[in-house]
Structure formats: structure tokens, C-alpha cells
Design a binder for these strands. Structure first.
Lengths: 199, 199
DNA sequence: GTCTATAATTTGATAGAC
DNA sequence: GTCTATCAAATTATAGAC
């Protein structure tokens, strides 16, 4: 059972960050929640708390990118794919009593001015999400520039939606996002050049 | 000069929160930056750090609401009014080397699970912004329900835009917001019922 | 209203036995 | 790999002189 100690530490830290942010989480809390001794934490993460944050951000980036890909893979219409993503995020919020679904935005805003390694990890995460959504929209016939703008809006409304939902303890803000932005995808699809794809 | 000590404390705290968030800011930092002694801080804010945060959130809510009202008062077209707001926010980001323009979103996400007074203050701030933007859109002929959705999207994209801009040290995300959401306002205006207003 | 001193606790991090 | 013990520094908050 020694092998998954690293993963236990990572999982516990992720949850604590989503509860209390970066500066609000102490290593003693992590040690207790994992559970793992302080010595073990420093064994797996010699860079201490900062390295732990980078690892949490990297793994969260991957998990959310995979969630996005799995949702679009199961959905025919791109406009409803994004709505489905917002629905699923809202469901997560309710099930967890409005714990933050994503640790990255909070951590980035807390320490963007003081920890460049963490800021860069968060930047890479957001970039990878924008890229994944852009590629998906381009695959559906939307031209590169418009696709990138819409993908950026998608990530921004996700993060901004989490801010309002967590604050208001309501998923209504995410519903407003879905209602207002869904027509943007539809209209971009409608105005694409009528080159037939192999689908 | 005793009279504005309270204001100096408030201003210094606001700036420190935007730099390092709530848990990343200590009262000793506030004391040094204000400047004011710890005793003075507790004299004006007997509730300590938590009361200080509520006061910062309340004052920030008012300042931003006034900024919004002043921008829309100087602009003819609602679609360009929102773009102007995003432009101005972007300008602020560049001028301050990407210090967070708004302390509320960060603080709310940090302590929404642990401090209900702070969470409620942040909720009131967001609500007041949504209400101001909704009223403005309704005054311009957009029906209540659609206006509220667009106003909510406006606040969400502002907060989410700050997250990405601060993380990427770039104002390009806010530009993407302006480009993608501006047509939504225009189309809502175009489809309003043709009742003539007194403008 | 402002100041200094300090209480009581917790923090991130390290050392070294096992 | 895991554990305990411990460091030096910083934290919020309070007390009481001026």
C-alpha cells in the first residue's frame, strides 16, 4: 500500500484546495486527510507546498480535459455538448454542497503575483482546455479564429460560473451561461462554409 | 488626519487582497501598508480580519457599480457599452502589471465554505451588479428574462476573464469575451418589440 | 484614537532514527 | 518509505498604558 501514498496525498490536497484555497490549506491538514506523515509528503514532493500545488493543477487539467472529450464524444450536436458540460458541472456542485469544482482558478488568483511556477501551471491548464475546445469546434467546421474565441469564452464562463455558483450556493448562474451562449455555437455552425465533411 | 485612518486601512487591505487573496494577507501587512497600528485596525474593525473583508467587499461593490453606471451613461449603444467596460478593465490590468482588478471573486472562492458573512457580502455584491446591468438592458427595451440572463453572463465573464487574464498575464481573454458576447447584445436589441421609447 | 507588548497557536520546513 | 521531534518565524487577537 506504499505505492499509492502519492496519490492519496494528491487527492486529499485537491479536495482541501477546493475547500479552502491554497493559502487556506496547511500541510498538517493534508497530512491528516491523506493520511500520510509530513515526512511522506516531503518525500514525494520535495518542493513542498508549491510543488504539491503544481501537481494538483496538472492532474486537474488532465481530468477536466478528459471529461470534456468524453462528453463531446457522446454528443451529436456541439451546441448541446457545451450545455451538457455545464449541466454536469452544476450537478457536481449540488452533490458536493457547493465545494469548488475546480481548484485551479482560486489558486491562480491567489498566488499569480507571488509564485510563477504555480501561475505557469495554471496557464498551461487553461491553454490546454482552450486548445481542446478549439480543436473540437474546428473539427465541426467552424473556422479557427472564431473557434478559438468561442473556446476561450467557454473556459472563462466555466471559471466565472464557478465563482458565482459557489458564492450564491445556486447553479442558476451556470444555467444562464448555457442559455445565453448556446445560440453562439448554433449560429457559428449555421454560418460555416458548406464544405461537406466525411461525417 | 485621524479621520481617514479607517479609509487608509480599507484602501491598503483592498490592494493586499487583490495581490495575495484573503488568507495570503496578514494583519501585520495591512498595518504596515496602511499605515496604522494593529490597535487602530481593531479599533475601526472590532470584528478583525473577517469584518475587514466584508467592508472591502461592500466598498468594492459600490465602486464597480458606479463605474458601470458612468460608462453606460457616456455611451449611446448598449453593445459597445459592455465592450468599453471590458476595455477599461483590461487597461487597469496592464497598468497595474496584472494585479487582480477585483478582490471579491478570489475572497469568495477562498472562504465561501468557511465564512458565511463574507460569502453573503460577496453574494450581495454580485447581485447588485446583475441588477444594475439588468435594469440598464431593460431600460433599452430588452425584456426582463433575457436581460437578466445577459446581465448574469456579463458578471460571469468579467470574473472569469479576470481569472484568465491574471493567470496568462494577457488581456487577450477579455478581448475574446468582448468579441463573442457583443453580438448577443446586438441581437437582443434587434429583436425587441418595436415600442417607441422617448429617447 | 493610537501605541507597544505579548499571549496562544500554527505555519512550512528540516533532521535523523528506523 | 515512514515516522517523530523540533526549528524559527509568523499568525490572529487581546490588554492596558498613554
Amino acid at each position: 500500500m506504499g505505492i499509492d501514498t502519492r496519490q492519496r496525498i494528491l487527492t486529499a490536497t485537491n479536495e482541501l484546495f477546493r475547500h479552502h484555497g491554497y493559502n487556506g490549506t496547511s500541510l498538517s491538514q493534508v497530512s491528516k486527510a491523506a493520511p500520510a506523515t509530513i515526512g511522506s509528503i516531503y518525500h514525494f514532493f520535495p518542493g513542498g507546498k508549491e510543488a504539491l500545488a503544481v501537481a494538483v493543477i496538472d492532474s486537474t487539467a488532465t481530468v477536466y480535459r478528459q471529461l470534456f472529450e468524453s462528453i463531446v464524444a457522446e454528443t451529436n450536436d456541439p451546441a448541446s455538448a457545451f450545455s451538457l458540460f455545464f449541466d454536469q458541472a452544476g450537478q457536481m456542485l449540488v452533490e458536493t454542497d457547493f465545494i469548488d469544482p475546480c481548484p485551479i482558478g482560486t489558486i491562480a488568483r491567489e498566488v499569480a503575483s507571488t509564485s510563477d511556477p504555480i501561475r505557469r501551471a495554471a496557464e498551461a491548464a487553461f491553454d490546454s482546455w482552450v486548445e481542446a475546445a478549439t480543436d473540437y469546434l474546428v473539427r465541426n467546421g467552424i473556422r479557427q479564429g472564431e473557434a478559438r474565441d468561442l473556446a476561450t469564452l467557454f473556459v472563462i464562463t466555466t471559471e466565472g460560473g464557478f465563482v458565482l455558483c459557489r458564492t450564491k450556493r445556486s447553479i442558476e448562474p451556470l444555467h444562464a451561461v448555457a442559455r445565453t451562449t448556446s445560440p453562439l455555437i448554433s449560429s457559428a455552425l449555421a454560418s460555416r462554409s458548406p464544405t461537406p465533411s466525411k461525417a
